[in-house]
Design a protein around this nucleic acid. Structure first.
Length: 429
RNA sequence: GGGGGGUUUCCCGAGCGGUCAAAGGGGCCAGACUGUAAAUCUGGUGGCUUAUGCCUUCGCAGGUUCGAAUCCUGCACCCCCCA
């Protein structure tokens, strides 16, 4: 079967190609055949994050172009720890933790690749399945024999660690062999010819290609995507709360949506190319819009909408939008407790006895109880400077006392400090 | 081993016995402007029952004095010079 579009051309205008082996050979292969390719994700946490999105979306594009993606979740490699791009030796994860992580990540993947679409259906594999019964002696004889240590030492990931004080353990040093063998195994099992990954995976990917040539005498291919960085060179996807996760449990759809809405103009074009389904023409249209009428932020809106829908579904997108309306709207009127809970799910909640509100709770104290101010003096300062809001309505009098009338649901009210810091105060009878 | 300098509020840094909760800058917070941006501007930046009041803070522990971040003694740590 033939693929339905020239995927390499597509990836390259999107800026998704960092490096590849044998560009002519690979290009021809991908134009003429539907290829099975794979990308691996180590289950270091129970969710993928934005950093994984580049490879994930690339895998998705390959599938849309008529190729078959294999997604490898590294139950075995996750036990070892990839030294690539890491300055420190990793802590080993427990088996139970890994098991849990693999399960959770497996569920997330279905959002990105289709597991039920005939001949190009995605396949989910776990390298623990084929590594667990591979004995140490067999592995050394059958795989280790093909790895010249001097070549391994020359790999960037190893070299960096050798030169640092942290050093590298034999365990992490061996990581490369496992990933290399994965590629050979997937070739045997699925006829997998291409491995893709982030640019930090180049060393591991080429190790697999070398191993396949030595063990099977075949030519496999590798392609890496650039890392997702901002215009200033720093990594994208970092927030004050840590990484931007794909799991709604770790990063709410609202926060996820907000992250993309707030992407800087300088990074928006790149993000659109990386992540959106828009055509080149449509993206160039948005580039123009960004230059001529930046205040519209059409690019950011498009990006936030598409990605939130993809990662959290239509419902998640609606929730994020509704929360945005409330957060940036004027005033919070009657909302149901449930709705409020949902919208403010990931902002701090403080619980106080009902009697406090009944007898009148000074706003100064409420702000401290809610964790928005460290002391009453700070509260007074905030209020007198016009930075305090009750249910999104500015309150500038330091003597304000909260009463039952301020409730916005039968038991809660919403405090805000400054532009974006919120807290819910909940009163219990 | 000898000599000299230092340790200040989140950071840098002024402080030379009372007018020091301590200059100035940075950061941070709030406000205005704006695009939920950047830049800019304004205000704030120890705590308390907001008081021209009290309490805690200037490496640590003592002392002198009506009064100390400022003077003295000891201790700890840091830097420099000589050996």
């Amino acid at each position: 079967m033939k693929p339905n579009q020239d995927i390499l051309a597509e990836l390259s205008w999107r800026g998704l190609v960092h490096q590849m082996t044998d560009p002519q050979g690979l290009s021809q292969l991908l134009r003429e055949h539907s290829v099975t390719l794979y990308a691996g994700f180590d289950p270091t946490a129970d969710s993928l994050h934005v950093g994984h999105l580049v490879a994930l979306m690339t895998l998705r594009r390959f599938q849309q172009a008529g190729h078959r993606p294999v997604v490898l979740v590294g139950g075995a490699t996750g036990m070892i720890g990839d030294p690539s791009g890491k300055s420190q030796e990793r802590n080993l994860l427990s088996r139970e933790q890994l098991e849990h992580n693999i399960q959770a990540i497996g569920e997330q993947l279905a959002r990105f690749v289709d597991f039920h679409c005939g001949s190009t259906s995605a396949v989910l594999v776990n390298n623990y399945q084929w590594m667990k019964d591979f004995s140490y002696l067999d592995f050394l004889r059958d795989v280790g024999k093909f790895f010249p240590v001097n070549v391994m030492l020359a790999k960037e990931s190893v070299k960096a660690r050798l030169e640092s004080d942290a050093g590298i353990s034999y365990t992490e040093f061996s990581y490369m062999l496992l990933q290399a063998y994965d590629f050979v195994y997937l070739y045997d099992r699925f006829g997998c010819l291409l491995q893709i990954g982030g640019s930090d995976q180049w060393g591991n990917i080429t190790a697999g290609i070398d191993l396949a040539r030595r063990m099977r005498g075949v030519q496999l291919y590798g392609l890496t995507c650039p890392l997702l960085t901002k215009a200033d060179g720093t990594k994208m996807g970092k927030t004050e709360q840590g990484a931007l996760w794909l799991s709604p449990r770790r990063t709410s759809p609202y926060r996820f949506y907000q992250y993309w809405i707030n992407v800087e103009d300088a990074d928006a074009g790149k993000c659109l190319r990386f992540f959106s389904q828009l055509s080149q023409q449509e993206i160039e249209e948005l580039d123009r819009s960004r230059a001529q009428e930046p205040q519209k932020r059409a690019s950011q809106k498009q990006l936030a909408e598409e990605l939130t829908r993809l990662v959290h579904g239509e419902e998640g997108l609606q929730r994020a939008r509704r929360a945005t309306e409330i957060f940036f709207g004027r005033q919070i009127d009657q909302v149901s407790q449930q709705e409020l809970e949902e919208i403010f799910a990931d902002i701090p909640h403080a619980q106080l006895p009902w009697s406090r509100l009944e007898q009148g709770l000074p706003l100064v104290e409420a702000l401290v109880e809610a964790g928005l101010c460290k002391s009453k003096s700070e509260s007074r300062r905030l209020i007198s400077q016009g930075g305090a809001y009750v249910n999104n309505r500015r309150v500038a009098e330091t003597e304000t006392v909260l009463t039952l009338q301020h409730l916005v649901t039968p038991e809660s009210l919403v405090l805000r400090a400054g532009r974006k810091k919120y807290a819910v105060l909940q009163f219990q009878k």
